[in-house]
């Protein structure tokens, strides 16, 4: 299995399309940070500080690197799935399209091993992408805006001391990775149904967008099905920035996200093990 995973890693990470996401965010994030530095902060000052400054004089570096790192994590979670699907959608469909299954599956020993190896590499790519975005946004923001305490506005205001922030962010990234595992595993599943990698990308984004719409509209019927939609748990990473941290909720959500990932992977295995390879 280790060798299979290594081979799949070579196949995936020697393709140009794997790096589209890294390139895109590698350009986007510095641009946004530059825009913020050159005056974009004022929107935050208006939205956030203006109310506070009516009644308080605020000391400290409020709009600091941790703040923008947190902001980016929250703002990019619709964009990140797009780049994840570029790779996940091609993992199985791409082999079908190229016809390489004709060699791969006759020489592998079992379809399950191949699919499992591909899935592991898909998850590795997902983790790498989320970490890359997290480290880039936080690192760049800290370099440009400096450090300080983290101000989190939800209902009221939570200020997290700087000393604990690295641990908070590491945990947040871990939970964000888990959320994105669900996206990748869903796209991986769709990839098993077709030989065209565009289909899984479109289907996954459609599911995410429709699910997001459902959970945000305050209609009773939609709110009732909300717990069954995986996007409902996308914000688990944000709970790490609550005070006190709701560990019970986080643990429950971790199990749910793992459950979705396992479910989508199981369906993929079951489907693919019985699929006729006609390409």
């Amino acid at each position: 299995m280790v060798r299979l995973v290594w081979f799949e890693t070579i196949k995936t990470f020697t393709r140009l399309r794997t790096y589209i996401g890294f390139l895109a965010f590698g350009i986007l994030v510095p641009l946004v940070v530059a825009g913020l530095k050159m005056g974009g902060q004022r929107a935050f000052e208006r939205n956030l500080l203006a109310i506070l400054e009516q009644d308080f004089i605020i000391g400290g570096n409020v709009l600091n690197g941790w703040f923008f790192g947190f902001f980016f994590l929250g703002a990019l979670w619709v964009h990140v799935p797009i780049v994840l699907t570029l790779v996940a959608g091609d993992q199985i469909a791409g082999e079908g399209d190229a016809g390489t299954f004709r060699f791969l599956l006759t020489r592998a020993g079992s379809r399950s091993r191949i699919i499992t190896a591909k899935f592991i590499v898909t998850l590795l790519y997902t983790a790498a992408m989320v970490l890359f975005i997290g480290v880039l946004t936080l690192g760049l923001s800290l370099a440009v805006f400096g450090s300080g305490d983290l101000l989190v506005v939800k209902r009221g205001l939570v200020v997290l001391p700087e000393s604990g922030l690295p641990a908070h962010f590491l945990l947040a990234w871990g939970l964000a990775i888990l959320s994105m595992f669900v996206v990748s595993s869903l796209c991986f599943l769709f990839s098993a149904f077709t030989d065209n990698s565009v289909g899984p990308i479109v289907a996954t984004m459609a599911v995410i967008i429709i699910s997001l719409i459902i959970i945000t509209l305050p209609f009773e019927m939609f709110q009732a099905i909300r717990p069954w939609l995986f996007v409902n748990y996308f914000d688990t990473w944000q709970k790490v920035f609550d005070d006190p941290i709701p560990w019970g909720d986080i643990l429950r959500n971790v199990w749910i996200l793992l459950g979705f990932t396992a479910l989508f992977f199981s369906i993929t295995l079951a489907w693919f093990n019985r699929k006729d390879i006609l390409s």
Binding site: R3, L4, F7, I10, K11, T14, R15, L16, A98, G99, T100, R102, F103, L104, T106, R107, A108, G109, I114
Partner: peptide, 25 residues
């Protein structure tokens, strides 16, 4: 076996293709 037209990973070398596809087991 060869089934219909042989298909390989175009972005990899001939050597690498044989190494991967031949070395799966």
């Amino acid at each position: 076996a060869i089934v219909e037209k042989p298909a390989f990973y175009g972005h990899l070398s001939a050597y690498r293709n044989l190494e991967i596809l031949g070395g799966l087991r």
